[in-house]
Write a protein that binds this DNA or RNA. Structure first.
Lengths: 171, 171
DNA sequence: TCTTTTCGACAACCACATTGACCACCCTAA
DNA sequence: TTAGGGTGGTCAATGTGGTTGTCGAAAAGA
């Protein structure tokens, strides 16, 4: 990559107008948008009886899915060790969002399944996201919103979304 | 918020086409875009002699800024305790990106400043982001990219960007 | 059947945050 | 001028969520 050139470009334009927009604005805008949606989601969730859910829990429950998974598989999906996944399940179970059930077809396995409460939280989340998208559509106009979504998809690809976001940021 | 209505809407359309796009795609697209930019940034940083930098370090260094801050103020900006901020500074200092200097005007304070190496990393990051934005512009066309940025800004506002992203996600 | 792999658990450990306590220092008002 | 309150930095204890290592039981494959 020709970054050296860019260094001078950036340094030079400190005294002047940005070419169009600074490059660093893009990730910040994306992150701020994401964060605002997630924060609003959890406000709604709290108001509707799920005050203890955190963003990471949503990813975990999404990774469990409607059919359930083993703790090992959950670890793979979340990008953490199976032991850490087991502890995550413990926490979700203690909060009443998940449970372990023995797998009759494989005595080693214990399937992690969402409880009805867990499924409800997921259903509500989907509805809140739909509502929030509606608010964006109101503000931007449906066309601009769709273009935004399409543009993003064409850059990042429709590639299956990664759920291993928990420790990714970490120090 | 009229979420109850949305629940049925979402449940109903499980058997059918999404209204346009599912609401949950929007946050995922935003996050995936953000993540892809950050991942590529850190690939570049690693290739240019900064292999030990993690995303969270970038936020911390950004919070320190070119003028330096006290550890307490750093804690406020990052949304963590001053003790945790102090440890973060210890880590950055151990890696050679920051240093503490006594403040001659206030004997209590120790100013945290970026080292030349830290400043270089920040400058390089800005250049990489500029380059990455160029790649997006190539793929989308400059017009569509600018529209994307403008649309995002009009939703989340030009409000100063929050740096307290580290523990925000957390479990 | 024998070997290898997989699953879930237990234990020890580590990284990074927390709270609480403390002293040194600045600032201001009596 | 001095007493008090607020602020800055550090130490200590603790909590949480992750890691690796190990293990026995069970499944899968040669």
């Amino acid at each position: 990559m020709v970054v050296e050139k860019k260094v001078n470009q950036v340094v030079d334009s400190v005294e002047g107008d940005p070419p169009q927009r600074w490059g660093f604005e893009l990730p910040l805008l994306l992150f701020t948008g994401f964060r605002s949606l997630i924060d609003q989601l959890h406000e709604e969730l709290a108001d509707h009886g799920y005050p203890d859910l955190r963003p990471a829990h949503g990813f975990a429950m999404q990774a469990i899915g409607p059919d359930g998974v083993t703790a090992s598989e959950l670890g793979r999906r979340l990008g953490i060790s199976k032991q850490a996944a087991g502890k995550t399940v413990d926490r979700l179970a203690a909060m009443g969002y998940a449970q372990r059930v023995a797998d009759p077809r494989d005595a080693r396995r214990k399937l992690v399944r969402l409880t009805p409460r867990g499924l409800d939280a997921l259903t509500l989340s989907a509805a809140v996201f739909q509502e929030l998208r509606g608010q964006w559509a109101e503000r931007l106009g449906n066309g601009r919103l769709t273009e935004l979504e399409d543009a993003l998809e064409s850059v990042v690809g429709p590639a299956g979304f990664r759920l291993d976001a928990a420790g990714w940021f970490g120090d």
